[in-house]
Design a protein around this nucleic acid. Sequence first.
RNA 1: GCCGGCAUAGCCAAGUGGUAAGGCAACGGAUUGCAAAUCCGUCACCCCCAGUUCGAGUCUGGGUGCCGGCUCCA
Length: 475
Amino acid sequence: MELHLYNTLTRRKELFRPIRDGEVRMYHCGPTVYQRPHIGNYRAFLFADLLRRVLELADLKVTQIMNLTDVGHLVDDAEEGDDKLEAQARKDKLDPWQIVETVTEQFFIDMEALNVKRADAYPRATDHIPEMVAMVETLIDKQHAYRVGDNVYFDVHSFPAYGRLSGNRIEDLEAGARLEVNDEKKHPADFALWKSDEHHLMKWDTVFGPHGFPGWHIECSAMSRKFLGDHFDIHTGGEDNVFPHHECEIAQSESVLNGPFVNLWMHTKFLQVDGGKMGKSLGNAYTLDDLSERGYSALDYRFLMMRGSYRTSLNFTWEALKGAAEARRNLNDFRSRLLGESGAEGGVALDAIAADSAVAKARQAFRDALADDLNTSESLAALFMLRNAYVHGKLSASEYPAALTLLDEADGVFGFLDAVESGGLSDQEVDQLIQERGEARAAKDFARADTIRDKLSAANITLEDTPDGVKWFRG
RNA sequence: GCCGGCAUAGCCAAGUGGUAAGGCAACGGAUUGCAAAUCCGUCACCCCCAGUUCGAGUCUGGGUGCCGGCUCCA
């Protein structure tokens, strides 16, 4: 399975070739844990999960790292504003370390609800101060950075490729930026590697002075290097990370390493709400709880995200979420119906089935679409077409086990199917109850018939009264 | 203001030169003790204007709108 993935750096789709055969190392910019992430934040993390699962589908061994930013991410501009965490701490009159714990815990609860696979590690910035300091020292030694008092800045003119990722030119940045209030930098576009502020709550005593804390960008450079090595395959983030964050990471890391840092940069477009921007001040920055209050599960949201391209901004509306929830239910039912057919057990070797069978064709379409820069929309369409073939009776019973296996394979990527619950009744018991209900109905004892139906329903059994008799499945 | 991206039916969305995937909703019908579910059928000239081409949603130019970066944000 050959994957073609879009690289922000080269602005085109490229054939993906791992640095080490059969192995992929990737790093994701994770949340800044100062308040609970909203559903827009989770779009980027769901993308990271999708990417990991597709790489695994392509038989690659994935090492996946997602950082937690718990210091240094400033509210205002990178040099003068408050630290996001500290600002929240002051607002809530809480210790910033306490906020980190609370939000991190909530983050993992949300991620689990979204059926996101655990990364290999979630390093925290505050646990890697020594690595960052070492890197900053190297940058100073190599004259890519300079000290002004207890502060350290990166000299963007020392790195000729600065601006390549984002398409920005240093001159334009200077021209476009608002008035620069920090006059201790040599150039306005220079960015902070290390800052000092005695009023900061989270601060460290280092070679640079007693009250220091790291710049936001150096955190990811230091942590990705520690966990993935100097040169690794993929780095992802939201589109807002392209500049300045990732641009700065490249400058720092490549200046330290004298070599390539990341081969493939991938970025998720933002989620919009009702055609416009999502923001806390607009009151439309929903959390998973907001969705839950309206009766939607985290998996419904996950499925909605899977229906669109990660490279196009996706418009969140309640109607769209409802549509996704219904569509997801239909695929769930498809699986349930296949399971309900006698003999459909799954576990079929899909590579071995006849290439001209409906299932093989669907599988090919499903995989080809994903291999084309994660075209989930088209990939899911292949599954719905298989469902249509089944509904229209164009799928022979002998193909059901393979169809079921394909659904399982697809669920391995999309992660949207509900767990099948036995409901505590065996097939024999269900058949027995359905027969009793049939007798009740024949005798026009509808009260009894409905009681039985309710009992089955409570055990997660769905009944359908069709012209061909009663059908049932679990789910 | 400067730089970049996007614009497809009521909603979400795929599609990069050859005559509009898929899903949801809606509508008509079938079935039904009721309800649900299910089944059959219907449903787009692709933001506007101009151009290139035998042929354009797909390319070019100009508008308009939205989004992103320059400024905290996935």
